[in-house]
């Protein structure tokens, strides 16, 4: 048992627990907060895996912006919890069954591929340095320039769409 593994297991437990918490909270606000915790945990994983930039993006975009947006909407709509519904009574047991089967399948796949036991690289100094970040930036703006630009357009479109949807219909069509 190395310290890495211990850290991993602890973090894993936190991530799973927060995910379950998100899943089974009655109140949507709690769910959102559990999810934030989960995202932060995952961000730590990213750091452990030597991806500091992604970790930072995770914290700022996901745990920050996105979840704030969620909370904002939840509170705006007052949709913390819903009245119980009798629709689709068999949905839950089926879903659990399927989820269980899926887990079993995943486990089976992982166990059956025993040859791929390569360990992840431990976060060494080089990775943590600015060199790795520069290297990634070089890659992003050279090899992946076009997708990057497309992403920017996507974000623009999403922004426009969100504004159009959320806007009060005052103007209408002449």
């Amino acid at each position: 048992m190395t310290s890495d593994l211990i850290v991993f297991l602890v973090l894993s437990l936190i991530a799973i627990a927060s995910a379950l918490g998100m899943l089974f909270s009655k109140n949507a606000v709690y769910s959102a907060l559990f999810l934030v915790l989960n995202f932060i945990t995952v961000a730590v994983f990213y750091l452990l895996l030597g991806a500091p930039f992604i970790a930072m993006a995770q914290i700022t975009v996901y745990a920050g912006a996105v979840m704030v947006l969620f909370l904002f909407v939840i509170m705006l709509l007052g949709a913390e919890s819903l009245a119980p519904s009798q629709a689709l009574p068999w949905q839950k047991p089926l879903a659990f069954t399927l989820a269980l089967v899926l887990v079993v399948e995943a486990v089976y796949i992982i166990l059956s591929r025993a040859q791929l036991t390569a360990a992840v690289a431990s976060p060494d100094a080089s990775l943590n340095s600015m060199d790795s970040l520069r290297e990634m930036a070089m890659m992003l703006f050279n090899n992946y320039l076009l997708p990057f630009e497309v992403t920017s357009i996507l974000l623009l479109v999403a922004m426009v769409g969100a504004i159009v949807l959320a806007k009060q219909e005052k103007v209408g069509l002449k």
């Binding site: 629709a87 689709l88 949905q91 089926l94 879903a95 399927l98 989820a99 899926l102 399948e105 089976y108």
Partner: peptide
């Protein structure tokens, strides 16, 4: 018309395809 049951169908499909691949 229930989105969730559609999602369930997708899930079922995933499970079946994975099962088939396995």
């Amino acid at each position: 018309g229930f989105v969730r049951s559609y999602a369930l169908s997708v899930m079922l499909g995933v499970v079946l395809i994975l099962g088939y691949l396995i």
